[in-house]
Amino acid sequence: MNIYWEGFRTFFKIGCFTLGGGYAMIPLIEEEVVNRKKWLTKEDFLDLMAISQTLPGVFAVNFSIYIGYKLRRLRGSLILALGTILPSFLIILTIAMFFATFADNQIIAAIFKGIRPAIVALIAAPCINLARAAHIKLTNVWLPVFTALAIWIFGVSPIYIIILVAVGGFLYGKLVQPDNK
């Protein structure tokens, strides 16, 4: 089978089943790409995880770009990324076109009144697990607290905070602990 078509189909399938955000589909991608298609070795896959977590942007798309590039350079990455994006693009576009007419419906409005507080809770909840994974201790707990308050109370754009922290981290790593291996 044509490698472009096979890559597109594989990532279209992954895009269709990415319920609940990027991290949920890591096992799915590993099964397809490492075990079944053998496009990447296990070591490649771990490298790819590191890169995708380091870089900004949508996790699943970063994955498909990397694998596509490994397979067939730029054209491969374009086709695989398109496969990942297309399912959600089509589904959301359909919803966007009809949601306005639904939103005024009394029943839909009542359902969404119940759902909204739940969504806020779902966003707040991962903070606890992630705080553990990010090694937050007494020495660096000011970073997330300062970040959250600056955005919430003072309306600072998150973009400035990310730039500030990245530059601060760079200078700290370069000047304060240059021998740290």
Partner: peptide, 17 residues
């Protein structure tokens, strides 16, 4: 590595915000 070690806690703050 140092840059990543400060960006990770910041990301938690972004989510809280």
């Amino acid at each position: 590595n140092t840059m990543l070690s400060v960006l990770r806690p910041t990301v938690v703050g972004l989510i809280a915000a």
